[in-house]
């Protein structure tokens, strides 16, 4: 039977009636209409559906919507502020870290979670952090460059 829950997504609170078996991914995409979060495998293996929940990256296909009740959820649509792109978004565009773009929202959200926790990661730490996000186009080269560039732009190295 459906339950009425409140979901806070990108700063807006939504009241949604959900079946207990619905995933957060389904609710975000099909009920809130936020299709920027992508479905790739429905089993937590590809990372395309990564969103940030209470500051931590999660595969939204593995989270039940009822378990996201009252949590603070950030999706790709909530990253740009007042029309200004997040430095990660800027860097992905500039460095050529986007080809087909299907992994991009999940990849950027995973990178944001990394930089929130570790503002100056090494290349190896970046590679490890996004190892659960599959990209088939770029070979990850320009994605890693973009994350390192965003890190530099957000937290310049001390001279």
């Amino acid at each position: 039977m459906k339950q009425l829950i409140s979901l806070k997504v990108n700063g807006t609170t939504h009241e949604v009636a959900v079946e207990p078996y619905w995933t957060l991914l389904n609710v975000i995409r099909d009920h809130l209409g936020l299709t920027g979060t992508k479905r790739g495998c429905d089993s937590g293996d590809c990372g395309a559906c990564t969103v940030i929940m209470n500051g931590k990256p999660v595969n939204s296909c593995l989270v039940l919507a009822v378990d996201a009740r009252d949590r603070d959820i950030l999706t790709i649509e909530g990253l740009a502020q007042d029309g200004k792109l997040h430095p990660l978004q800027e860097a992905f565009i500039e460095k050529g870290g986007i080809q087909c773009g299907y992994c991009t929202p999940g990849m950027i959200m995973m990178a944001k979670a990394l930089l929130d926790e570790n503002p100056r990661p090494t290349e190896a730490q970046v590679r490890q952090a996004i190892a659960g996000n599959l990209c088939r186009c770029t070979g990850y080269v320009k994605i890693v460059e973009a994350i390192l560039a965003a890190s530099e732009a957000m937290t310049p190295a001390k001279p």
């Binding site: 992508k38 792109l85 992905f92 773009g101 950027i108």
Partner: peptide
Amino acid sequence: QSVIKPDSREKALGRTQYGVD
């Protein structure tokens, strides 16, 4: 010239629509 492909911005913003979107 390595011009930046115009579709990248929309993709970075999560606005691009694929298939069942």
